[in-house]
């Protein structure tokens, strides 16, 4: 009992993932800055920002639904952290694991977006409302390719369990290459999920101020930002577990090192992608997702289906 409380709250649960989230925010911001020929923030900047926000006044708009407004950040953070518990990090065993946990993780990752929607909608600000509508519209566009990308990898491994998927690809390392289309599709969809790079439409600063986050301040904003960063870590470790399951059978220390490396690498790729593109319009984003990403995800699915039927009989 004490052991599981320790694992859920401290390591590798809430505290660890929060630290990791701040770390990946630092990596993201630093690389973004260096790619733009700037110096970038010092290592403690994300933590300092977090603490500063905690100390600030919490303002709830008069017209807003107080409960919903305050609950949304907690919802988002809890869902993202819970998803983390199901992902194999540096060994095949994750904290919680069962036969269909890949589906659960994907759905838990959708909850933060819905929580942002609730928070933004009930804050009754016009900008926040436009932001929420945009983030839901965007959800429909990126979710399908992301699911298909990850599930086609699961299809080849013949399991819905992340643990078995990772185990399968460690056994057959060459099959990882077969999933490269799905990996790229999932990476780009992840940008949409994290509302980053060309897909930061819901919080486009120059159009809708901060979108969903417009009315948030203080503690609530700190937790919203943290949950976005946790989402980034969870997304990165999910992709790492499914598409790059190296070093899972090594000893825990090496495995841990590999895990941090993989997460950093994926975060770095995400920062690179957001550095080199302009923000798309919502209609262009949806067209892009359905015209290019979804067909490629289907292509991956078909390839894996054929492979499954022919190669692994």
């Amino acid at each position: 009992m004490v052991g599981s409380i320790f694992s859920v709250l401290l390591f590798p649960g809430f505290l660890f993932v929060s630290v990791l989230a701040l770390y990946s925010e630092f990596i993201d911001r630093k690389i973004y800055a260096r790619l733009q020929n700037r110096v970038g923030p010092p290592w403690f900047q994300p933590l300092a920002d977090f603490i500063k926000l905690l100390a600030k006044e919490d303002i709830v708009p008069e017209e807003a639904n107080r409960n919903m407004f305050n609950l949304a950040p907690a919802f988002a953070l809890c869902a993202a952290v819970t998803a983390f518990l199901y992902i194999p990090l540096w060994s095949f065993n994750s904290l919680c694991s069962f036969g269909g946990d890949s589906i659960v993780v994907l759905y838990l990752l959708t909850i933060p977006t819905l929580a942002f929607f609730i928070g933004g909608w009930y804050s009754t600000s016009l900008f926040a409302r436009i932001g929420t509508v945009r983030s839901l519209t965007q959800l429909v566009a990126y979710e399908v390719p992301l699911f298909m990308g990850i599930l086609s990898a699961a299809l080849l491994a013949d399991s819905w369990s992340l643990r078995d998927i990772a185990f399968f690809y460690t056994q057959h390392p060459l099959y990882i290459l077969l999933n490269s289309i799905g990996f790229v599709v999932a990476l780009i969809s992840l940008l949409g999920k994290l509302e980053k790079g060309p897909f930061d439409i819901p919080e486009a600063e120059t159009e809708v101020v901060a979108g969903v986050f417009t009315e948030y301040s203080g503690r609530n904003l700190a937790f919203l930002k943290l949950s976005l960063n946790v989402e980034m870590v969870v997304g990165a470790s999910l992709l790492a577990a499914v598409f790059l399951p190296f070093g899972l059978n090594a000893n825990p220390l090496a495995g841990f090192f590999f895990f941090i490396l993989k997460v950093s690498a994926i975060v770095a790729i995400l920062s690179l992608m957001r550095t080199i593109t302009a923000r798309l319009r919502i209609d262009q984003m949806i067209r892009f997702c359905w015209k290019y990403m979804a067909p490629f995800a289907i292509l991956q699915l078909v390839i894996n289906l054929i492979l499954k039927g022919v190669l692994l009989r």
Partner: peptide, 22 residues
């Protein structure tokens, strides 16, 4: 093509930042 500035931004990683730490 997308990402026309790719080469420039990747080159910046190995360059000294232009920021002057005032």
């Amino acid at each position: 093509r997308p990402g026309k500035m790719m080469r420039q931004v990747l080159g910046s990683i190995f360059k000294k930042p232009a920021t002057i730490l005032y």
